[in-house]
């Protein structure tokens, strides 16, 4: 058993002349809460897309535990435990919350290709989906269509879908994007409450949330990893300050 949950070696990616990932090296040990920060356009979401297989890197390798997963298709990475959520809700609008999560559970248990038995025969799968929704405080709305849920509830459903796949490594792309401040605290409390067996990497712009919920922070700028360290080290690093001071002048960081 290795001491890395997820590792990235020499990752490069460019779209034409635009370099979005440049020699990215990341090593994430199991069970740690990582934050990935950086100004807009730093390549944070691109990095998640590369790690989950939604984009193909030009060069470099990606490891999940000891396994090289660089060429695996996205769904195979999910089956091995590398799962993501999306910055913009990417849900099933006309499925109920319970149907959506049940679908994810059925896919994980590999019964989703069964077409000759009715779904009511899969009580365990449905119950498990319901339990996941309960943990994320969505049990009371589980029979509502996804499109009818409040925005914050949809953000939680994003996480519920990811949890239904039993991730070993969970990549959260701005889980609280668009959620009011007080609700985003609750949302992060739910993330903090996840099992320590799950390694978490999240992208977040709110520094207060980052410092509260992450034990390690990676700073990306211009497709490169600027530095990695504890929240304290990051907060006191002059280079990070320079990056964010540049943003302060535009008035976007509190």
């Amino acid at each position: 058993m290795s001491d890395t949950a997820l590792a990235v070696r020499g990752l490069n990616k460019s779209f034409g002349s635009l370099v979005v990932a440049s020699d990215v090296e990341i090593n994430i040990p199991p069970g740690v809460r990582y934050a990935l920060i950086g100004p807009n356009g730093a390549g944070k979401t691109t990095l998640i897309n590369l790690m989950t297989g939604m984009l193909r890197p030009d060069a470099g390798r990606i490891f999940l535990g000891d396994d090289d997963i660089t060429v695996l298709p996205p769904e195979e990475r999910v089956r091995r435990g590398l799962v993501r959520t999306f910055q913009i809700n990417s849900l099933f609008p006309h499925l109920t919350a319970l149907e959506s999560v049940t679908l994810a559970v059925c896919e994980r248990r590999r019964v989703a290709a069964t077409w000759w038995r009715q779904i009511t025969a899969y009580r365990h799968e449905v119950d498990e989906a319901y339990d996941i929704l309960s943990v994320l405080t969505l049990a009371s709305v589980c029979h509502r269509l996804t499109r009818e849920l409040a925005y914050g509830q949809q953000r939680l459903l994003e996480i519920a879908l990811a949890l239904a796949t039993r991730p070993r490594v969970l990549l959260l792309d701005e889980p609280a994007a668009g959620v009011p401040r007080e609700e985003s605290q609750e949302l992060f409390a739910a993330i903090a409450g996840l099992s320590r067996d799950i390694t978490v990497l999240f992208i977040e712009h709110d520094m207060e949330l980052v410092f509260r919920f992450a034990s390690r922070v990676i700073v990306m700028v211009g497709g490169r990893v600027l530095l990695e360290g504890t929240p304290h080290e990051i907060a006191s690093d002059p280079r990070v300050r320079a990056v964010y001071l540049g943003k302060t002048r535009q008035g976007s960081v509190s």
């Binding site: 099933f92 609008p93 499925l95 779904i119």
Partner: peptide, 19 residues
């Protein structure tokens, strides 16, 4: 069936299915 649910998932958001 579970497969029927998966089909509706494909219809609703095919890009989400691999995830």
């Amino acid at each position: 069936s579970p497969f029927g649910l998966a089909l509706r998932g494909i219809r609703e958001n095919g890009q989400r299915m691999p995830a």
